[in-house]
């Protein structure tokens, strides 16, 4: 697995700016970098439009269209359904797409799937930097493979039991089992699909737990951001995922000595780096690199 860096944090703390500054820093050091935003409300190009062309130096930057992934998944399923359930061809399934798009869990799945596809396609790069959606959604994405793995493993076991029972009955009394039903594991489409899902899940759990994957929590010195960061840490702890760096961004924006003390106690096991608040509305490439220089060594292996 390549060096993959995730930037997490509350909305507006500076995840995108930090991820882009690291991308520039690494590119200047001669590394090839793939920078991807999986935030449905992405803004890599909005913030750095003037700075970062789509293929700047050694950086390939991309904003993933999550809605397109959701639609694609639903369309693929609908097409498969039309092939299996022939009588559905007279019903207009397309109308259902709009409703299914907003089913719980669909967005998380689409993001997880997109992430897998993008990481796999860019394994030739030295570094992959992932700018993530704000806390709530990202924690669900982290939890999804672990939660799904549990269920998929159980479903695979269950399905194998069903196939065994079918085969045993068919062996004694063939007329008791419908002819078109699969009897062995190689013929069963359900088991095949569960196998595909299982591979995706394994890839993601490996990705999140691999030693070369670094998770950087960006936060500001305000109480809301700190409280949310504590929730992120708790959520990740419960999944066995560890944080590699706390990036205290926009330091000096608010004068809060009391918060600072409690903040340092909360994250005492994790390295903390500080990035000062800059008044300028527009950060040019050199400024961004100089910001990354303050902390990048803490997460860069080479």
């Amino acid at each position: 697995m390549k060096n993959i860096l995730f930037f997490l944090g509350k909305g507006g703390v500076g995840k995108t700016t930090s991820s882009v500054s690291l991308a520039y820093y690494l590119a200047r050091k001669g590394f090839s970098v793939y920078l991807v935003s999986i935030d449905p409300a992405h803004n890599i190009f909005d913030i750095l439009g003037a700075n970062l062309s789509k293929n700047d130096e050694a950086i390939i930057a991309e904003e993933v269209d999550i809605d397109a992934y959701v639609e694609n998944f639903i369309k693929e399923t609908t097409n498969k359904m039309k092939q299996t359930y022939k009588y559905l061809q007279i019903i207009n399934l397309d109308k259902m797409i709009e409703i299914m798009k907003y089913s719980p869990g669909m967005e998380e799945y689409a993001i997880m799937y997109a992430l897998k596809e993008k990481v796999e396609a860019n394994l030739d790069k030295d570094y992959i930097i992932v700018d993530t959606p704000p806390t709530g959604l990202m924690l669900k994405i982290f939890a999804l493979p672990f939660n799904s793995k549990l269920w998929i493993n159980k479903l695979i076991k269950w399905r194998k039991k069903i196939l065994n029972a079918r085969a045993s009955i068919a062996n004694i009394n063939p007329s008791a089992i419908r002819e078109d039903l699969p009897l062995n594991e190689n013929e069963d489409d359900v088991l095949k699909e569960l196998g595909i899902q299982s591979k995706i899940i394994d890839f993601m759990t490996n990705l999140f737990k691999n030693k070369t994957t670094k998770i950087i929590l960006v936060l500001n010195q305000d109480l809301l951001s700190i409280k949310e960061s504590v929730r992120i840490k708790k959520g990740l702890d419960s999944l066995g995922i560890s944080l590699n760096l706390i990036l205290l961004n926009k330091k000096g924006l608010v004068n809060t000595t009391d918060i600072n003390i409690s903040f340092k106690n909360l994250f005492k096991d994790i390295p903390i780096k500080e990035v000062p608040f800059l008044k300028s509305n527009f950060l040019d490439k050199n400024t961004l690199i100089s910001l990354a220089e303050l902390w990048a060594d803490a997460v860069i292996c080479n």
């Binding site: 719980p104 669909m106 939660n147 799904s148 269920w151 479903l155 699909e193």
Partner: peptide
């Protein structure tokens, strides 16, 4: 399980 598992099956 997550609804996408049901949908995929």
């Amino acid at each position: 399980p997550p609804s996408y598992v049901g949908m995929a099956l």
